[in-house]
C-alpha cells in the first residue's frame, strides 16, 4: 500500500513521526480522510478523535485539540495545541474535568468562564471517546 510521511506536533512536544497509510482528522464539518498522494491542501482541525494507520499496522486512535493539517507533496503535517494517545488519557481525571466543566457551565459565572468550560467539556468528551474507541 502507498504511504506518506506523517508528522504530528503538539504545542509542547512532538507527538508522532512516521510513515502512514491513512489518517482521518476531525474538522469543524466532520471527518476528513487522507491517503497517499492527496492533493496539496490545508485543513482546519477541530477538537476530536484522530485516526491513523501507520504502514503495516492496525488503525490507531488519538485525541487532538484544535489546529491545522497541511498536505504537501505526500507529506502530511498536523499542528495541534494538544494530542494524546489513548493510553495517556486518564479516565478518572477526564471524568472529573468533565464534571467540573458541566458544573461551571450551569453556574454561568461569566461569559468567559462559560466558554472556557465549554472548551474543556469538548476536550473531555473527545478524550473519553478516544479512550473508548481504542479499547474496543
Amino acid at each position: 500500500m502507498n504511504t506518506f510521511s506523517l508528522r504530528i506536533y503538539e504545542a509542547d512536544d512532538t507527538f508522532l513521526i512516521g510513515e502512514a497509510e491513512m489518517v482521518i482528522v476531525p474538522t469543524p464539518d466532520g471527518e476528513y480522510g487522507v491517503m497517499a498522494h492527496h492533493e496539496n491542501m490545508v485543513v482546519s482541525v477541530a477538537p476530536g478523535e484522530l485516526k491513523y494507520r501507520l504502514a503495516g499496522q492496525e488503525l490507531k486512535y488519538a485525541f487532538v485539540a484544535s489546529g491545522m493539517m497541511r498536505i504537501e507533496d505526500n507529506d502530511v503535517l498536523i499542528l495541534t495545541e494538544a494530542a494524546e494517545h489513548p493510553e495517556e488519557i486518564d479516565m478518572v481525571r477526564v471524568r472529573r474535568k468533565e464534571a467540573e466543566a458541566k458544573e461551571a457551565m450551569l453556574q454561568k459565572k461569566s461569559i468567559k468562564d462559560y466558554y472556557l468550560a465549554q472548551a474543556t467539556l469538548i476536550r473531555s468528551i473527545n478524550r473519553m471517546r478516544v479512550k473508548n474507541d481504542a479499547g474496543r
Binding site: 474538522t27 476528513y32 490545508v42 482546519s44 482541525v45 484544535s66 491545522m68 504537501e72 499542528l79 495545541e81
Partner: peptide, 20 residues
C-alpha cells in the same frame, strides 16, 4: 507555485489556528 486547497475555507482555517 505551490497552490493549496483550503478546507472548509481559508478564513475558517485561519480562525481555527490563531488561538492555537
Amino acid at each position: 507555485d505551490v497552490h493549496y486547497q483550503f478546507y472548509p475555507s481559508v478564513t475558517e482555517v485561519i480562525n481555527n489556528i490563531i488561538p492555537a
